[in-house]
C-alpha cells in the first residue's frame, strides 16, 4: 500500500535535508526522542483500538448470544454475510448516505468557511450563530428534529394546508433517509466550516494581492487561489465525512430507529440490531469487521486518489 519514495529530493526538500544533516551530527541521544515517549499513546491505542478489533475479529468466528461462552462457528457468520439481503440493502443505504452527505456538506461548508474567513461586517456574530449546532449533542439534535418533523404535532401538521396529505416525512420510506442525511449535515456542516475557515485564513495574502495586480476578480480568486490552496483541507474534510458516514449511528437510531421498516437501517445500525437486539454477537462482529475494512479502504483510497500523501506546501518561504 505504501508507494516507493522518490530518492531525489526536490529543491524545497533539500533545505530540510540539510537541516537534518546538522541534526545527524548531534549525539544519538539528542537527535530523536526514544521509543518510550510513544509508549502512553501506543498503549492507549493498543488497549482501545487494536485489542477490541482483534477480539471482534475472533468473535466473528464464533456463535455467541451474550450468555455463557462463545462457541466456535467456523466461517458460518461470514457465509451468512453474503446471504443476508438486509446487509446488502444496508450497504447501499450506507453508500447513499455517504455520497449524499458529502455532496451536501462540502459546498456549503466550503462556502461558509471561506466567507467566514473574511473581514465583513457582522461576520463574527453570524459565524457564532452558524456554529451553534456544533455545541449540541447528537441525540439532542436527533430528538429535536424528530419532534420538529412529527407528522401529528410538528411542523408538517402546522403546514397541512400546504403539504396536504404528504405530512408523513419521517414515516415515508422513500423520504426518511434523505431527512437523515439532512439532519446529519445540519449537525456537521459547522465543524467542516471551521476547518475551511481556518485553512482559508492561512492562505497567504500576497497571493491575493498579486492576483489583483494581474486583474483577477473575486470569482477568479476563489477558483484559482482559494480552492487550490484548500486542497488538503478538502481531503481532510472528505475523509472525516466518509469515515463518519460509515460509522454514524446515534443520530439515525434516535431519529428513526432505522425505520420505517428498514428504510434507514445503515450498516452500523444493522450491526447494532443484530448484536444488541437479536444478541447474535458473532454475526454482529462479522458486520463490524466489514465496517472497519470498508472505512479503512475508503479513507486510504481517498488519500491515494487525492495525492494527499505528497503533502507539499505551496506557501513555503512566505
Amino acid at each position: 500500500m505504501i508507494p516507493a519514495i522518490d530518492p531525489t529530493p526536490s529543491p524545497a526538500r533539500r533545505a530540510v535535508g540539510d537541516r537534518e544533516e546538522a541534526v545527524l551530527q548531534m549525539s544519538d541521544h539528542d537527535r530523536r526522542p526514544g521509543a518510550v515517549w510513544a509508549l502512553p499513546a501506543f498503549l492507549f491505542f493498543a488497549a482501545f483500538a487494536v485489542l477490541p478489533m482483534v477480539l471482534v475479529l475472533v468473535l466473528s468466528f464464533t456463535s455467541w448470544n451474550g450468555l455463557g461462552d462463545p462457541q466456535p462457528a467456523g466461517m458460518e457468520n461470514w457465509q451468512r454475510l453474503a446471504k443476508d439481503d438486509e446487509l446488502v440493502a444496508s450497504l447501499w443505504r450506507t453508500l447513499l448516505v455517504m455520497v449524499a452527505s458529502w455532496a451536501l456538506q462540502t459546498p456549503i461548508a466550503l462556502g461558509i468557511g471561506v466567507w467566514a474567513a473574511g473581514k465583513q461586517r457582522n461576520r463574527a456574530v453570524l459565524s457564532a450563530l452558524f456554529f451553534v449546532p456544533l455545541l449540541l449533542s447528537t441525540p439532542a439534535i436527533a430528538l429535536m428534529w424528530r419532534t420538529f418533523l412529527d407528522a401529528s404535532f410538528g411542523l408538517p401538521n402546522a403546514l397541512r394546508g400546504v403539504l396536504g396529505d404528504n405530512t408523513n416525512l419521517l414515516g415515508n420510506p422513500d423520504l426518511a433517509i434523505w431527512i437523515a442525511v439532512f439532519v446529519m449535515s445540519w449537525q456537521w456542516i459547522p465543524f467542516h466550516t471551521l476547518l475551511y475557515q481556518g485553512a482559508a485564513r492561512g492562505v497567504p495574502v500576497v497571493l491575493y494581492e498579486a492576483s489583483v495586480i494581474d486583474g483577477a476578480g473575486r470569482w477568479r480568486q476563489f477558483w484559482s487561489i482559494t480552492l487550490p490552496q484548500l486542497r488538503y483541507t478538502i481531503v481532510t474534510s472528505t475523509i472525516l465525512m466518509l469515515v463518519g458516514s460509515v460509522t454514524t449511528f446515534d443520530a439515525i437510531l434516535v431519529l428513526t430507529e432505522g425505520g420505517p421498516g428498514t428504510a434507514t437501517r445503515i450498516l452500523p445500525l444493522h450491526m447494532y440490531f443484530m448484536g444488541f437486539t437479536g444478541y447474535e454477537m458473532g454475526y454482529a462482529s462479522a458486520v463490524a469487521v466489514l465496517i472497519v475494512v470498508l472505512g479503512t479502504a475508503m479513507s486510504l483510497a481517498a488519500v491515494r486518489l487525492s495525492g494527499f500523501r505528497a503533502m507539499q506546501s505551496q506557501s513555503e518561504g512566505l
Binding site: I2, I5, P9, E20, A49, V243, A288
Partner: peptide
C-alpha cells in the same frame, strides 16, 4: 527526511483505522 514522512504516513493510516474502528468496535 523520507523516513520521517514514511512513518508519518503510516501513523496517519493507523489513525484512520482507529477512527473507523472506534465507533463500530466499542459497540460490539
Amino acid at each position: 527526511g523520507s523516513g520521517v514522512t514514511y512513518r508519518n504516513r503510516r501513523r496517519r493510516a493507523l489513525a484512520v483505522v482507529a477512527m473507523a474502528a472506534t465507533a463500530g468496535l466499542l459497540l460490539t
